[in-house]
């Protein structure tokens, strides 16, 4: 079981709700993915074009993870969080602050500042960040419930280009590590899980697939396979042959006070 902030989840696949062709396809894909935790966003209300996704998601029993997308500073993110908690009735929060509109890359300085404050305000904070091991430890120290390092630029489907840093984050973290953004194929999600990630978050790769419902099922299987492989203990490539002059020959040439 994945446990975040004392809440247990059987599924280790988090999904986003954006970029689907219709709300119905989105709901079908979520069901097919087996996800239990889904992200959504908050926007200024447009009364002529109301996006009726909140009630169906709630009715389907998903735990909601609202994000702060659109926030460009810590101050804006804190404001957005308070609105979000009010609108969606949950203290869970995917904290994301991206001042850069082209690549939507997260701002580490503002994120740490906002996270510290939001934890004090009682939010369950899951920050979306670069795969920066030191930043992840700092976020853990201010009380974040998990960290969400990116695999690659969001929507880029490039897979785990940050793998060496994700490995360090996983090695060091005391809170769940959820690999977010850039996972374009089920094999990449399995890779993240095999490396020891606690969960992954996938949106674009499912939403923009030719058959989103089938792709959601494929991600579900991949995440489970990767997790099981990790638990089972992965096999490794063959052992390199030893070389050069012997380092332990001295043990055989006398002088060893062998008592063992």
């Amino acid at each position: 079981m994945l446990t975040i902030a004392n809440t247990s989840f059987s599924s280790r696949l988090l999904t986003g709700t954006g970029k689907f062709s219709t709300p119905a396809t989105m709901l079908d894909a979520l069901a097919s993915s087996g996800t239990e935790l889904v992200t959504l966003a908050l926007r200024r209300l447009d009364r002529r074009d109301r996006d009726a996704i909140f009630e169906p998601l709630q009715a389907a029993g998903y735990r909601l993870l609202p994000n702060t997308s659109g926030a460009r500073t810590a101050e804006e993110a804190i404001q957005a969080a308070q609105l979000t908690r009010e609108a969606m009735g949950t203290p869970w929060l995917k904290l994301e602050i991206h001042p850069d509109p082209r690549y939507l890359l997260p701002d580490p300085v503002e994120t740490l500042k906002a996270a510290e404050r939001l934890v004090q305000l009682g939010f369950i904070v899951l920050p979306y960040v670069h795969a920066d091991p030191v930043l992840c430890k700092r976020l853990e120290e201010v009380g974040c419930a998990a960290v969400m390092p990116l695999a690659a630029p969001i929507g880029s489907n490039q897979g785990l280009v940050t793998a060496p840093f994700i490995d360090i984050i996983i090695e060091q973290s005391r809170v769940p590590v959820i690999v977010d953004a850039g996972l374009g194929a089920p094999s990449q999600a399995a890779d993240a899980m095999e490396r020891g990630a606690d969960a992954v978050l996938v949106n674009t790769a499912i939403a923009t697939a030719t058959h989103p419902v089938a792709m959601a099922a494929a991600f579900k299987a991949a995440v489970e396979a990767g997790f099981q492989a990790r638990q089972a203990g992965l096999a490794t490539p063959g052992l390199r042959a030893a070389a050069s002059s012997p380092l332990t020959a001295f043990l055989e040439t006398g002088g060893d006070s062998d008592v063992g």
Binding site: A41, N67, L201
Partner: peptide, 10 residues
Amino acid sequence: LDLFSAVAGG
């Protein structure tokens, strides 16, 4: 009054 609502997002 500023009004906000939940929308789809990642």
